[in-house]
């Protein structure tokens, strides 16, 4: 992993552990996405590609080649890894410190982890999956201003939106979710069920 310096700005892409979301890897390495990232001041692009190393290698090579030809020097460092035993905590920390961005599949685990780190998040639902409740979650979360919903066919637009979103994003977990209603923590629900009053 690259060392952290003050000028670094990292975009981290997670594709899920079980079935890699190859469409997302391809999409983020498209010229339009790369240009949008460079325009946003990003210096590093880190991709967790799972078992799709061949997709990553193929598209990263093309992207680097293109940047080299057009710019002479590589303005954006592209790096990747397959899995991390330590549940991506180090990567989230690094993105948080570099004021970066996370582009993720719509798994609830990645969404929760990103929001708890207060990092702008673009969620790209995998339309190839059979059940569409991931799409429902992404839509509901976008409506509440927790994240931006992206699309594999045009990720650049979402990346452009993310800079403005950084200052608008809502706090998660919400202090009072829903208006004028009582909220409880799960610990309180457990105590209540057991009849514990303290």
């Amino acid at each position: 992993m690259p060392p952290l310096d003050s000028k670094m700005k990292m975009c981290f892409v997670t594709t899920g552990a079980t079935a890699p979301f190859t469409g997302l890897i391809e999409s983020v390495l498209q010229p339009a996405s790369i240009d949008a990232l460079r325009k946003g001041g990003y210096t590093h692009l880190l991709i967790q590609y799972g078992s799709a190393k061949h997709v990553m290698d193929q598209h990263a090579t093309i992207a680097l080649q293109r940047m080299k030809e057009e710019l002479g020097n590589e303005a954006l460092v592209i790096d990747g890894f397959d899995f991390d035993q330590d549940s991506l905590k180090a990567q989230f920390k690094m993105v948080q410190q570099s004021n970066g961005l996370i582009i993720s599949h719509a798994g609830s685990g990645s969404i929760l982890e990103t929001l708890r780190h207060q990092i702008p998040l673009i969620v790209v639902p995998n339309t190839e999956l059979l059940d569409n409740h991931q799409e429902d979650l992404a839509k509901a979360m976008e409506r509440s201003h927790y994240l931006i919903r992206g699309d594999v066919t045009n990720l650049a637009i979402a990346i452009q939106k993310s800079e403005k979103f950084r200052i608008q994003m809502a706090q998660f977990p919400p202090i009072t979710s829903g208006q004028h209603r009582e909220t409880k923590s799960f610990a309180a629900i457990m105590d209540e069920t057991m009849g514990f009053l303290d």
Binding site: S108, L112, H133, Q134, D136, L137, K139, A140, F186
Partner: peptide, 9 residues
């Protein structure tokens, strides 16, 4: 507790 990922069903 129903999963956080379950929004509409």
């Amino acid at each position: 507790v129903e999963s956080f990922a379950r929004v509409t069903s």
